[in-house]
């Protein structure tokens, strides 16, 4: 394991209550200037890993190095070197955007005049000038996220942790947010560690990705490397209800790598979908199984996720996370921003 990365995890383990192994021997190395995606279903250990890397949680065993420092030994210095954008909005609704930034600067020991200068620069950078002196509780979701990003950058960190940063944003807001992150990386060489709910974001924005499941990393590589690991296309054949099991009929066909049956559907990983479809359909009809649908997919990260975890990512992750964000917004509204 290389130890010269911006973020290095070496056999990280976190056990809660002596029983639950939330993170079970996770290792990876994030190079300086890299955007590294960390994906996994609910309860996989993503947030626990991020907490251990960002000096919020002590590992049960293993080692986390961030910015060249061992996190357990130098938690406060690590906090000075990193920015963290949490999943939920942490801006203070009773304070204006500008005040949120000035207070955040103060918590890093930045002098008030310097804090004010940095706040003004970030407000302009994030296109929040018109709203800078409004209470942040009046901000839209996209504005809040941009304010969160500004707060996380006010002390000019070299490493940024983003925990589901675009949750609840519309496509335009997501694109805008990632535009800022990409710009930052280009201009400052910042290292970004991101957990995201949106696999398409991870696919297009991340240099490398790790997939965690049940506390263990099950796959790691660039998005293309991971897709290549699946091997070619994915064909799904749906047979009529009551049709016989087609698994052993499809498996010997030319170019087939694996066949997974889910009720009346067969998920077939193969070298070429176009070549396999007529063969598979013919094979089904030959043994008396009617075919009611066929799809061919180029591998996406959804397929990669399904392949390595055995679960659909969006079904696992989407509703609960979104519901939580919506609930928090409702609660905030109900109490009128009072903390």
């Amino acid at each position: 394991m290389q130890t010269d990365g911006a973020i290095v995890a070496e056999n990280l383990v976190k056990v809660y209550g002596g029983k639950v192994r939330a993170v079970d021997g996770v290792s990876f190395n994030v190079a300086p200037g890299e955007i590294f995606g960390f994906l996994g279903p609910n309860g996989a250990g993503k947030t626990t890993t991020v907490s251990m890397l960002s000096a919020g949680l002590r590992p049960t065993s293993g080692r986390a190095m961030v910015g060249g420092l061992e996190v357990s030994h130098h938690p406060e210095e690590v906090k000075r070197r990193i920015g963290v954008i949490f999943q939920e909005s942490t801006a203070d609704g009773d304070l204006t955007g500008r005040e949120n930034l000035e207070v955040a600067a103060g918590t890093y020991g930045i002098a008030r005049s310097e804090g004010r200068t940095r706040a003004n620069a970030l407000i302009a950078e994030m296109h929040l000038t018109d709203a800078a002196d409004r209470y942040s509780k009046t901000y839209s979701g996209g504005m809040r996220r941009r304010l969160e990003l500004a707060v996380g950058l006010v002390h000019q960190p070299k490493i940024l942790f983003l925990d589901e940063p675009t949750l609840g944003l519309d496509p335009q807001g997501r694109a805008g947010f990632w535009g800022y992150v990409q710009k930052l990386r280009k201009e400052t060489g910042m290292t970004v560690f991101v957990t995201t709910h949106y696999l398409d974001e991870a696919d297009t924005m991340c240099d490398r990705i790790a997939i965690i499941d049940h506390g263990k990393i099950v796959a790691e590589g660039t998005p293309n490397e991971l897709k290549d690991k699946i091997g070619g296309d994915v064909v799904t054949v749906k047979t009529a209800p009551g049709a016989p099991d087609m698994t052993e009929v499809i498996r010997p066909l030319a170019g087939v790598h694996t066949v997974q049956r889910q009720d009346d559907s067969y998920r077939i990983k193969c070298t070429s979908g176009e070549t396999l479809v007529p063969l598979a359909v013919e094979a089904c009809y030959r043994v008396g199984a009617g075919v009611t649908g066929v799809t061919v997919k180029r591998p996406s990260l959804d397929e990669v996720f399904l392949d390595f975890t055995g679960r659909e990512y969006r079904e696992e992750e989407g509703p609960s996370a979104t519901d939580r964000a919506v609930m928090m917004q409702r609660v905030r509204g109900a109490i009128g921003g009072r903390r």
Binding site: S54, G56, E76, E77, K79, R80, V84, F86, E88, S89, T90, A91, D92, G93, A104, T107, Y108, G109, V151, M328, R332, R339
Partner: peptide
């Protein structure tokens, strides 16, 4: 509301 989490995430 996460505000305390933000403060605890800083070196203050």
């Amino acid at each position: 509301f996460g505000i305390f989490k933000r403060t605890r995430g800083t070196p203050a």
